[in-house]
Amino acid sequence: MEDYARVVDRFVGFGGRTLEQSGQYRILAARAVVWDALNDADVLAACIEGCESVTKLSDHRFDANITAKLGPVKTKFKATIEVSDRNPPESYSLEVSVKGGMQGFGKGRAEVELAEDQNATLLSYRVEGNVGGKLAQMGSRLITAAGRKMADGFFSRFSERWADTI
């Protein structure tokens, strides 16, 4: 007999988690520079698609306002980002909590690692998360795809900031 988790996995998408994504970028900048950028509210704001503002409340806490179209739902989200396991300039983890009012919520964790690679930096990330409420109810597969795109879009834009440097 198929167990329930497998049926759900098949329905929800690949991998089983609602959202699971990882990737690696080679950034043409020194690790310390990249690290600083990862902790700069303005840089983060510029890299998040649909981001209206990012406020850095402390080294460990950012708040963001984002307008995003996820599947059929276009809505404003309030995100709080808590930084944990901060190990400058090598790695940190982000606990992201997103609230979209009656549209639902999202929760995720991103682990980011920076490694030196000659005079460039290798950025590796791993994101996992899930959504709830209307976001899960209305076309969760679309939303999962949109979430993946958002995560990858962020790191891709972030890396491109240094595309022409060195």
Binding site: G132, M138, G139
Partner: peptide, 18 residues
């Protein structure tokens, strides 16, 4: 037809799209 909750308890077949 199948009413599915994901492992966290969210209803993921909650519209005529799913």
């Amino acid at each position: 037809e199948h009413g599915i909750y994901d492992e966290s308890g969210q209803l993921v077949t909650g519209s005529y799209m799913d």
